[in-house]
Design a protein around this nucleic acid. Structure first.
Lengths: 84, 84, 84, 84
DNA sequence: CGCTTAATATAGCCAC
DNA sequence: GTGGCTATATTAAGCG
């Protein structure tokens, strides 16, 4: 781990610099996450069901083929135990 | 996936057995969760602030977990950046 | 908050007793949660897809009517945006 | 839920617009998450232990948050049970 | 009962 | 490629 031992200052500065870069990025990321939350709140304010909308967004993420696989597997299990 | 395809009954029974074991365990778990809720209600009835007590319990849990961790490398880094 | 102020010992003992009861219950709860995890591991070892099985268990929890509601709402949204 | 029923187009457009806003934000968020990952890779390339650095960053975040909390009541309880 | 925190479940990542 | 660990997303609980 370089010459961190001894606190020679170089590695310290390097580490701190990395940490600060990361923290800045995490702040940005949190900002966007908050924006997303705001949109869902707005969605709700327009009378839509946010939970369902989340599912829609999630489903759009998985491509159609994969979704079909998942659903048919689910149905297979459900059918196997007599749920459907 | 075994011989689930075809619904031959063996895998079906196996699946259902797993499901029922899980559901039984989840019921037990819910029972205990309810017990915990009852204790907090009792706490409140004795004039204590339940919310704060929750924080105390959470803190004690975190501390107990942390105690298990070796912290030396972490401290080295923290020391390197002047956090401790 | 009773006579906690002053550390008169009575409230202290009471508090600690509550905390320990809660902690014991939480330990039990955690034990059962671990058991559930073990069952899912076993499920996997038998060649089943644990993730799908989790969905089955979750679906059994919501009663049929509620499930139908959720699914039809989802389909309505998906249809509205041309997903299906 | 407004006039979604009937697919009159207005609610459809609204829904789609919300979805697209969310998806755009999620893309941005993912971009930043990737940037963070890149920094950790760079960290590693400089001979530091990324996992430990993650813990440092997490600790700094927690401490920053905690600083915002008033802790008096909590400390009262902790003192009452001999934690501090 | 809505709205904010805490618990849980899922997913992604990294090391082996 | 599997298993543990971290981070995120979802769900549930508690509070006003």
């Amino acid at each position: 781990m370089e010459d961190l031992i001894g606190h020679n200052g170089v590695a310290q500065a390097e580490l701190l610099s990395f940490i600060e870069r990361i923290e800045r990025l995490e702040e940005e990321k949190k900002g966007i996450a908050d924006d997303i939350k705001d949109v869902y709140a707005e969605v709700k304010g327009h009378g839509f069901d946010a939970k369902t909308l989340r599912r829609v967004v999630a489903l759009r993420r998985i491509e159609a083929e994969e979704r079909k696989n998942q659903e048919s597997l689910l149905e297979l299990y459900m059918s196997a135990i007599g749920m459907i």
